[in-house]
């Protein structure tokens, strides 16, 4: 019995807890991708860099606060930086929209043109970030490190294996829940939110109803940039902030949005967790788990890992391909691309 419990604790510690945090980060990112796709009708490749920009702003504010000896006690100081990061990222997104995307909307550019434009924007923001903060690795977490320490868990339960929950993981999941609830409340209950869904559903009829498209686009950017700033900061807090990782984050985020059904907010969230859980379950080494579960003479000698962690990123691509073959509209039928 304790063997089974120990095995479950290992799985919880190395798969469930990290996947919940990673999945939340992906879900927030995918939600931004899906919003831009359904309102502005293009795939925004600059979204990863927008997240990175938000995280960078948070770091700059955090440094300023730290040097002024302001902290949040057990919580990371970065939380105080998030509102500023949201504001700055929103300003950046709106500036880019006014100077770049608006022109392409006016000439009624094809979605693929906008996609390529967004790649240009991606390079622009990533250059800006390296110019401001440089390409190096930054750790900006402070405060208490763990919500639940492995040793405390062992003492509490008397099991061999420990379960640890990092403060950043707890914050990530809690923030994601709050934001998702807010976004859904906004989209389904407010007049402006409903007008955004109406615009996404039927542009011509929305115009006939007197819905102002530029206002819808503006609000979409505000929400997307806010989500990006928070998601980027949470990812940086949880791992560490390295500008280049946000480029490779683009693939799992897009996979999450498409797997869930692009244009469908619920799908984006579900997709985020599908990708996170698959990445971690497939690249996890099950040796210890199996040692607990199997009789002693059958205990494995190898790592019992299905795929090396180096292939983690490729995995989201595989899931994407599988979903597109068997259910092209995604798990929660979004729009066909």
């Amino acid at each position: 019995m304790t063997d089974i419990l120990n095995a479950l604790v290992i799985l919880a510690n190395f798969i469930v807890v990290p996947a919940m945090a990673y999945g939340s980060q992906l879900a927030l990112g995918a939600l931004g991708i899906t919003m831009i796709y359904s309102i502005l009708r293009f795939s925004n490749f600059a979204h990863g860099e927008l997240m990175s920009f938000g995280a960078m702003t948070t770091i700059l504010v955090t440094w300023a606060l730290q040097s002024a000896d302001i902290s949040l006690g057990v919580l990371p100081t970065a939380l105080l930086g998030i509102p500023v990061a949201i504001a700055v990222t929103v300003v950046l997104a709106l500036t880019i929209d006014k100077t770049v995307y608006q022109y392409y909307r006016r000439i009624r550019a094809e979605p693929v043109t906008l996609l390529i434009v967004s790649i240009g924007v991606m390079f622009l923001i990533s250059g800006l970030i390296r110019f401001i903060i440089g390409p190096g690795d930054r750790v900006f977490t402070d405060g208490q490190r763990f919500l639940l320490k492995a040793r405390a868990f062992k003492q509490m339960t008397g099991l061999n294996e420990g379960l640890a929950i990092k403060m950043t993981q707890g914050i990530t999941v809690a923030t994601a829940i709050v934001l998702v609830v807010l976004v859904f409340w906004f989209l389904n209950k407010t007049r402006t939110g409903k007008s955004m869904r109406a615009y996404s559903d039927n542009e011509d009829l929305a115009l006939l109803s007197g819905i102002n498209p530029e206002r819808v686009v503006l609000i979409t950017w505000v929400i997307t940039a806010a989500l990006a700033a928070v998601a980027g900061t949470l990812y940086g807090l949880d791992k560490s902030y390295k500008p280049f990782t946000y480029l490779s984050l683009l693939l799992p985020i897009f996979s999450a949005a498409i797997v869930g059904g692009v244009g469908n907010p619920i799908g984006a969230i579900a997709g985020g967790f599908v990708i996170a859980f698959s990445e971690l379950t497939i690249t996890f080494a099950y040796k210890k788990v199996l040692t607990y579960l199997l009789p002693d003479d059958m205990a494995p000698d190898t790592l019992m890992q299905l795929l090396s962690t180096d292939y983690k990123i490729a995995l989201s691509f595989v899931i994407l391909v599988i979903v597109l073959i068997f259910k092209p509209t995604g798990l929660f039928s979004g729009k066909t691309i």
Binding site: R197, D201, N202
Partner: peptide, 25 residues
């Protein structure tokens, strides 16, 4: 008021929300 021939409702919105959007202005 104008009712187009095709695509004249918001398919993903509820009936009530369609009417609310009609009253948007």
């Amino acid at each position: 008021g104008f009712v187009p021939q095709t695509a004249n409702v918001f398919t993903s919105l509820s009936v009530e929300e369609n009417l609310e959007m009609g009253a948007f202005i």
